[in-house]
Amino acid sequence: MSNEQVAQDLVAQFGEERIYGIVENYGLLNVTTTSETIIPLMHYLYQHPTFKFHFLTDIAGIHFPQVPSHEFGVIYHLHSLENNVRLIIKLYVTRENIAVPTLTGLYASANWMEREAFDFYGITFTGHPKMERILNMDDMDYFPMRKEYPLEDATREDKIDALFGR
C-alpha cells in the first residue's frame, strides 16, 4: 500500500471536487477535503479492508488570515498501524461558517484534540459532547492562537519589531 494507491482510491471514491490538493510532503501524503466530506471520508478510511486507518494521531488547527476563503484549517493526522502509512487530511472553513462536524463518534481521542482546536482557534465542532475550552480559562473571550493576537502586549511601545528582525 503506497501513497499513490491511497490518493487514487480516495479520488475514485469521493471525486475530484471533494478530494483535492494532493501533495506529498517529505514522504507524507496530504489531501484536502471539505467539511461535508470529512465524516464519510474518515469512516471510509477506518473501515477500508486494506487501508485500516485506525489511529488518529493528532488534530491541529491553523489560521491563514490573508486567505478569507480558506481562513481556518483543521489538520487531521491519521496513521495506519498495520501498513505503517501516515496520512494528513486538511479541511478549511471560513470565519462566518466555522463549524466542522465532530469526529468523537469514531475516535474517543478526538474529544480533547477538538476542544484544543476550539480553545485556540474558535473552530466549533458540531455534535461534540462538550465543546468548551480546555487549556485556557473558561472566561477568556478570545481565541489566542489566531494571528490577530500578537504574542506580546500590543500596547507597549518599547519593543519595535523591526529591531528584532520580525
Partner: peptide, 19 residues
C-alpha cells in the same frame, strides 16, 4: 520566515489522559 508559521506538538500525555 525566521520562526515557524505554526508548530503543533503531539503530546502523548494530553491525548491519553482523556481515558
Amino acid at each position: 520566515g525566521r520562526a515557524p508559521y505554526r508548530l503543533k506538538y503531539r503530546r502523548p500525555s494530553f491525548i491519553y489522559y482523556q481515558a
